[in-house]
Nucleic acid binder design. Structure first.
Lengths: 329, 329
DNA sequence: TTGTACGCGTTATCAC
DNA sequence: GTGATAACGCGTACAA
């Protein structure tokens, strides 16, 4: 390993001078600057971030905590965060919590131990105390928090839109799928849809699901049609579940969207590649990740923050699991 | 921040002793051990990994470099790596290269600067020199290398199997989709399929695609049927492309698998949720990630390695985009 | 404009 | 058994 001392020796100056040219701090003669740079080149010196981090008590590391990167919604988020952080010169320390408080704590601890200068968390954190005594900025992503800045999509509005759209398109016996209780965004969209549905005059059922896992989704789908065979509209808790419902409906020989309309939530990339392509409520995942990163960077730079909570807009993506709206009525 | 010095003061011993009880190195009286532990508890002390890393010249950090986490194949890999590394007490420094040599180099550098003790790379690395002067162990994942240990699926065999199966099931005019030239695994599976097809007596075309992006996939699919409208069997370069082909075929009113058989590659999670569910060649992504992590850990521990190159088995997943095999013929 | 010397928090080596 | 203390590589007062 080549250290700043080696560079100093090679260029015949002191380590202080080398440090000065590298960090562009303080005056340094052009000639010596060149000498130093030459030595740096020759030795292929690159500063030890660990030593730097120890001295300055701050690194160029950001902690990113996700529930599960295997859920297709999150890679987009992660990518948004990464691209922005990379632009700003930060690197990511990354972990999946599986919505498990212990894992969450564990990662948080190691983040701190590694001197990260900020954390972006998309985990559930019922026990809010987790984050209380962190002395570094935290931004929550895909979830709300009163105590911390956050970036999230307007789930409640998304739920309302979904319900509106399916009603407008004529479904009369709707099944509303309620996502896992401990996942806040799932509850928001459920509440929004429930609000609209309960003020309407159509029949509807609520069915509760307890996970977003691929493996479970098909189970719920079967159960749905077994329990409510005459359902003609499904508001799914996310696109995974919607996909399973679609799949099962086709298997049962239903025509989509004639016999049954389906609206998902998230607009994960593969939703547009389904057959028929899935109508859904889009969350701008990549942009959310980016926003969260930008917000965190601003906070770390102690810039003025206009808004602590950034609510991202949600839009209805009208594909082929919903009918064309009847403009005559 | 509470340091080892604070603990020492509080428990009335020296920092050396505190270090000894924490690291369980050297003798220390049970009574003092208890005193120290009490102080640790009370102060909620947890050691600074950065200082530790500086002194020992090794951290508990692993660098993980992926092409693009947004491609559904990679989250599985990443999760396999993470779960195993987490078990072993390592954390992940994570980056996407986008198959871009500059980004790759950049991440590699920052990995080194942060004292990572090992690297798992799933990137393309045409310029092999990149990794040459790294003084830490590297394991390649989802790609082969003569110079470094690696974990990868048997792509060539996968290609052969796919071709065999589609032939066995009676396709006569096959289109073989060739993946991006710079992605090694894509070429392997292509070669395998080509080998079998060229020894058979059926007609086949080769069509080259240049990316695995969702957005491009639909374009290739349209082009495929425009150019070869009478194709009755498609060997896709991966499941994304296969999905797009399936989608387009259904749009064109083809019956699957009667008019057209399709076999994908990878078995990404959503392939089973398509309609009809996609027949494909499965790569055990999660297990590959795990294997790579285990291999790297062994190398870091200087354990004896039986094999530097771990080739994972590939299997045909017989779902509904292929016909049932005719056992009479 | 440049160099000396100290400290960041930890571990390991040596005395005691 | 325990305590000083030197080192890890870097950045910054302060002195020159």
């Amino acid at each position: 390993m080549v250290t700043i001392r080696d560079v100093a020796k090679k260029s015949g100056v002191s380590v202080a001078t080398v440090s000065r040219v590298l960090n562009e701090t303080g005056y340094v003669h052009e000639d010596t600057r060149k000498k130093v740079m030459a030595a740096v080149e020759e030795l292929k010196y690159s500063p030890n971030e660990v030593a730097r981090s120890l001295f300055k008590k701050k690194s160029k590391l950001i902690g990113l905590l996700l529930p599960d990167i295997t859920n297709p919604f999150f890679p987009q988020l992660a990518r948004g965060v990464e691209d922005e952080m990379q632009r700003e010169g930060y690197r990511l320390l990354f972990g999946n919590s599986d919505e498990n408080a212990e894992k969450e704590m564990d990662y948080l601890n190691t983040f701190i131990q590694n001197n990260v200068v900020g954390i972006i968390s998309a985990t559930n954190n019922k026990t809010k105390t987790n984050y209380k005594d962190l002395s570094i900025p935290v931004v929550f992503l895909d979830r709300t928090s009163n105590d911390y800045p956050s970036v999230y999509a307007d789930g409640k509005e998304g739920g309302r839109i979904a319900a509106d759209e399916i009603l407008k398109r004529g479904s009369k016996r709707i099944t509303l799928l309620k996502g896992p209780a401990h996942i806040q965004p799932a509850q928001d969209r459920f509440q929004g849809a429930l609000e609209v549905l309960s003020q309407s005059s159509v029949d509807f059922h609520v069915m509760t699901t307890t996970s977003f896992a691929f493996e479970d989704a098909e189970k719920w789908a079967k159960e749905l049609f077994a329990t409510y065979p005459d359902t003609d509209g499904v508001l799914a808790s996310n696109d995974i579940v919607a996909t399973a419902v679609l799949h099962e409906a086709l298997r049962l020989g239903k025509s989509i969207p004639e016999d049954l309309q389906i609206i998902g939530f998230d607009d994960i990339p593969q939703s547009s590649l389904l057959f028929p392509p899935l109508s859904t409520i889009r969350q701008p995942a990549y942009e959310m990740g980016k926003e969260a990163a930008q917000l965190l960077v601003k906070i770390m730079n102690k810039e003025k923050i206009e808004q602590q909570h950034i609510q991202m807009p949600v839009t209805f993506i009208d594909r082929n699991t919903t009918r064309k709206v009847d403009t005559n009525g």
